[in-house]
Amino acid sequence: MEQTLRRRQPGETVFGYALLLLGLFVMAEGYRIDGLYSPSSAGVFPALAGLVMTVSALAIIRRIHRMRPAHIPEGSGTAREFVRRTTPADVAVMAALMLAYMLALEPVGFLGASFAFLFLSIFYLHRGGLLTALLVSTGSLAAIWVVFRVLFTVVLPSGWLFR
């Protein structure tokens, strides 16, 4: 069994302990709901879920410790390897763009924020030129608008920033 374990990924140990903390938190919060006053109380399943999370997180951590350490090349640190292997620039940029998009959704409004997001992310990822990015974003946004707003009467945010 031991030799079939893969190498640790950079950041995996920290992740394992974070999962353990989450499990303990869920268990404590589950208990706090109503103090488990009866076998049918509202806290039974939340506390039980927290317990399972805690116990399995311990098993996961034990396994992580048995793994061979992550491969860190000469002249690089764990933090740098973490960034290189788990969150390359593309992932970080897209996650940041998504976050900005969501924050902008309500103030700017659906159309403006979505267009900006689509245009920028296609322009950045596809690298196929302005015109492609412009055409694809406009076309798909129009389709989304028709389906969601017109056919399904979903009231999309109209924005208040520019009113």
Binding site: M94, M98, Y101, M102, L105, F110, S114, F117, L118, S121, I122, L125, H126, R127, G128, T132, V136, S140, I144, F148, L156
Partner: peptide, 16 residues
């Protein structure tokens, strides 16, 4: 579809 186009479309569809 090229992923550079598909991924933004998936993301926006997820949001809407």
């Amino acid at each position: 579809t090229p992923p550079g186009i598909l991924i933004p479309l998936i993301l926006i569809l997820s949001v809407v």
